[in-house]
């Protein structure tokens, strides 16, 4: 699947490794259960972890410095646990790498994802970038702080959203 990143559709060069597959070279995304195996890998390439909604981000604490990507999952767009996972990764664990989301989410959730610290979205082939662009530009103000530390607007907790 292509990635939506920085407002552009880019190719995803990462390999999602299944449970029973041997670890390939290159950039790989592993399930949490295979994290230690990945950390001990001899091959070349970067490492990422796929976290399910019920898996705790704290379990990545020690490994985070060696991870380039944490991929959070939406089994369905209504399941909002990934928002809290993403925000925790940024705010509590100070993760500076890429936070990716995959699964079922909507353009209408784009701004929320960004404001919780997500910066890569796995989107279907043929995704209309315009719809996402519009969703991003639609609302230019927010009423609460976020991990993006947007510029304050006026008073209270209002923030300018970048377009």
């Amino acid at each position: 699947m292509p990635l939506l990143e920085n407002g552009q559709i880019v190719e995803d060069g990462w390999t999602l490794v299944q449970d029973d597959q041997s670890l390939p070279d290159g950039d790989i995304l592993l399930p949490l259960s295979r994290l230690s195996e990945g950390l001990g890998r001899n091959g070349q390439g970067r490492l990422g972890v796929v976290l399910k909604p019920d898996e705790r981000v704290e379990s990545l604490k020690d490994a985070l410095p060696r991870l380039d990507v944490v991929c959070l999952t939406f089994p369905i767009f209504r399941d909002g646990r990934a928002f809290t996972q993403a925000r925790s990764l940024r705010e509590h664990l100070h993760f500076k790498g890429n936070i990716r989301v995959s699964g079922h989410f909507l353009p209408d959730q784009y701004e929320f994802l960004l404001r919780c610290g997500v910066n890569q979205l796995a989107v279907p082939e043929g995704t209309d970038l315009g719809v996402w662009q519009k969703a991003h530009e639609r609302i230019t103000i927010a009423y609460q702080p976020s991990v993006l530390n947007e510029q304050p607007e006026g008073f209270a907790f209002r923030r300018y959203l970048s377009s």
Binding site: F77, G80, F83, R87, E111, F112, I139, A142, Q144
Partner: peptide, 16 residues
């Protein structure tokens, strides 16, 4: 009112 503003389109708590 502070709570109203804070909760409006809250990025983390809109799909509880």
């Amino acid at each position: 009112e502070i709570l109203r503003q804070w909760s409006t389109l809250h990025p983390e708590f809109t799909f509880l």
